[in-house]
Design a protein around this nucleic acid. Structure first.
Lengths: 175, 175
DNA sequence: CATGCCTGCATGACGCGTCAAGAAAACCAG
DNA sequence: CTGGTTTTCTTGACGCGTCATGCAGGCATG
C-alpha cells in the first residue's frame, strides 16, 4: 500500500495518488492482520468448543435475544446481513435442526425463523466458552483505554458507511 | 454477548461465566460491525474499480513487492495464508491470466508464482483507486491519534496469536 | 543406498456469501 | 377491482476458504 518496490514507476493515471504514510500503512496493515488472525482464532475456538460457526452463533444469539423467533427480514436487518445471506444460512441451519422456518400468518410472503429446543440448547452451551474466547484473545489483551478507543474507532468508521447504505437504498436498520 | 433476554436463565455450565461489561460489549460489537461493513465496502469499491477481489489484490501486491515472482510457500507465509488457500487462489488467478505457476528449478517439489504482464498492469491500474478507497473509508475518518491507537491495538492483539501459531507448529513467519 | 520422515503443493468436498433472477403476496392508483 | 409497483423471500451459479487427503521430491539415518 506504500509504494514498495514499484515506487519509481509511474502509475497508469499519470497523477501521483496519495500513497499511505508509514503511520497510515501501519494502521492499515495492522487492521488487516487483526481481522485475519483474530477472526480465524475466535472462529476456530467456537467451532472446536461447540461445533457452531460464527454465523451460526450470531443467528442463534439474535433469535435468543428476540425471545426465540423473528421475521427473516428483521433478522437480516438487525444483523446487517443481506436477505440472500440470511435465507441461505437459515436453510442450512434448519437442515441441522437448529431453527425452523415457518410461513408467517399476518404476511403470507413472510417467513418466521424460530429457535428449536436444540438450537436454544446449542447457544446456551456455546455462550460461556465463546465469551471466554473473546476475552482471551481480544478483551484481555487491551487496556480499558484501548477498549474505549476501539469502540470509538469502530463507530467513527461505521457510521458513514451506514449512512451511505441508507442514501442509496433507504432500508431498515434497527440494529 | 451480554446476557440479553436470557439473563435470568441459568446457563448450562451452572457456573456463571464472566459476561462482557457494557464497555467491553461496545468494543466487541463495534469491532464486528466494522469488520463487516468496512471490509464489504472496500472490497466492493475494489471490485467496481478494477475487477479484482481483495485476495487478488493482496497476491498481486505481494508479488509486485517481491519483484514479480515468489515461491508459493513464501507467498503464503508472508501473507499468513494457508498453503491450501494460496494454492486454490493461484489456480483461479492463473486461469484469468494474472499469474503463472511454474515448477521450481532448485526444488522440484516447489512452485514459483510469477506475475504476468497482465497481472502487473492490473495491480498498477488498481492501486490508486484502492488507496483512495482505503483513505475515504478508514484513514480519513480517524484522527492521527486514533490511527496510532488502531495500530497499537492490532499489534497487541495479533502478537499473541502469532506466538500461538509458532508454538503449535513452528513455521516460518516472515511478514 | 534403502528406510522412513518431513516438506511443498494439489485436490475434492463442503460450508459460506454474493449477485442476479424470479415467484408470490401486499400495496396502491385510478 | 384491475394493473403496476414494491416487498419478502428463494434459488442457482459462482468465487472463496477450510479441512482432510494424497503424493512426489528432499533429507537424514543406519
Amino acid at each position: 500500500m506504500t509504494r514498495q518496490e514499484n515506487q519509481g514507476e509511474t502509475v497508469a493515471t499519470g497523477e501521483g495518488p496519495r500513497w499511505l504514510s508509514p503511520e497510515e500503512d501501519r494502521a492499515w496493515r495492522g487492521w488487516r492482520r487483526m481481522r485475519l488472525l483474530l477472526t480465524a482464532r475466535i472462529s476456530a475456538d467456537l467451532a472446536a468448543d461447540s461445533g457452531l460457526s460464527d454465523p451460526d452463533y450470531d443467528v442463534l444469539s439474535k433469535l435468543s435475544e428476540a425471545g426465540g423467533e423473528l421475521r427473516v427480514t428483521e433478522l437480516a436487518g438487525s444483523m446487517l446481513w443481506s436477505q440472500s445471506r440470511i435465507s441461505h444460512h437459515l436453510v442450512r441451519m434448519a437442515r441441522r435442526g437448529l431453527v425452523t422456518r415457518d410461513s408467517c400468518a399476518e404476511d403470507r410472503r413472510g417467513t418466521v425463523a424460530r429457535l428449536t429446543d436444540e438450537g436454544r440448547a446449542a447457544i446456551e452451551r456455546a455462550a460461556p466458552d465463546h465469551v471466554a474466547s473473546v476475552r482471551r484473545h481480544l478483551i484481555d489483551r487491551l487496556t480499558p483505554a484501548q477498549l474505549a478507543a476501539l469502540a470509538e474507532i469502530a463507530e467513527a468508521v461505521t457510521e458513514p458507511l451506514l449512512a451511505d447504505g441508507r442514501e442509496e437504498a433507504p432500508a431498515d436498520d434497527n440494529g
